[in-house]
């Protein structure tokens, strides 16, 4: 789970759909698990798009297409809307994705990805459009994501863009640290705040 982030260079899995909600990423019936079993959630990522009601693979869905693979998921705008379920981020991480590229992320899901060492990379519509077309032309093309320098590059066309991440979260990802480690170190401040309020 906690892992240090460095430069990632990988092929991509394209999902050119908008408004992919967390109910699609992981349907509610898989939320009954009481442990954080990444394999379980990863196996059920996009369950109802990946399998039919009998459990047979739906060949037309991109995760079932052997042409595509890699640790970068590329999705249409407003990715991760709806339910706050962190299980969606666990499923993405559990499947093996390290980066999700989209032109727009829903708020809660974006935080959930960051808290699970999956990097949400927000790019312009133009960059995304070009990226989808590059992948369509050549599924073996690669994208380079450089967190230290906050850049994402389409290696097929050479287009590169800066992406935003706050300095604190960047530090956490680069060093494999989570928020709780930080908050636990702030106990004195918390008690001071409580005393001032009373």
């Amino acid at each position: 789970m906690k892992q240090k982030f460095d430069i990632i260079e990988s092929t991509c899995v394209p999902l050119p759909l908008e408004n992919v909600d967390t109910d699609q990423i992981i349907p509610a019936r898989f939320l009954k698990a009481v442990t954080r079993d990444e394999k379980f959630f990863g196996d059920n990522l996009f369950r109802d798009w990946r399998y039919d009601s009998e459990g047979n693979l739906k060949k037309e869905f991109v995760l079932n297409n052997p042409l595509y693979g890699g640790v970068i998921l590329v999705a249409g705008r407003n990715f991760g809307s709806g339910s706050s379920r962190e299980h969606a981020a666990w499923a993405i991480a559990g499947y093996g994705f390290r980066v999700v590229i989209s032109s727009f992320f829903a708020d809660i899901h974006k935080n959930n990805e960051l808290n699970n060492f999956v990097l949400p990379v927000e790019v312009s519509e133009d960059f995304l459009k070009e990226l989808f077309s590059s992948i369509e032309k050549d599924p073996a093309m690669k994208v380079k994501v450089d967190l230290q320098n906050e850049t994402v590059t389409n290696l097929a066309t050479g287009s590169s863009e800066h992406f935003k991440i706050n300095a604190y979260k960047k530090y956490c990802l680069l060093n494999g640290l989570d928020d709780i480690d930080y908050l636990l170190s702030k106990k004195d401040d918390i008690e001071k705040y409580e005393n001032d309020k009373n």
């Binding site: 706050s84 379920r85 962190e86 299980h87 981020a89 809660i108 935080n111 959930n112 808290n115 699970n116 989570d178 928020d179 709780i180 908050l183 636990l184 702030k186 106990k187 918390i190």
Partner: peptide, 13 residues
Amino acid sequence: GIGTSEVEMVLAS
């Protein structure tokens, strides 16, 4: 609304 990691944050701190 928050995610589960954030629930843990609030429980802890």
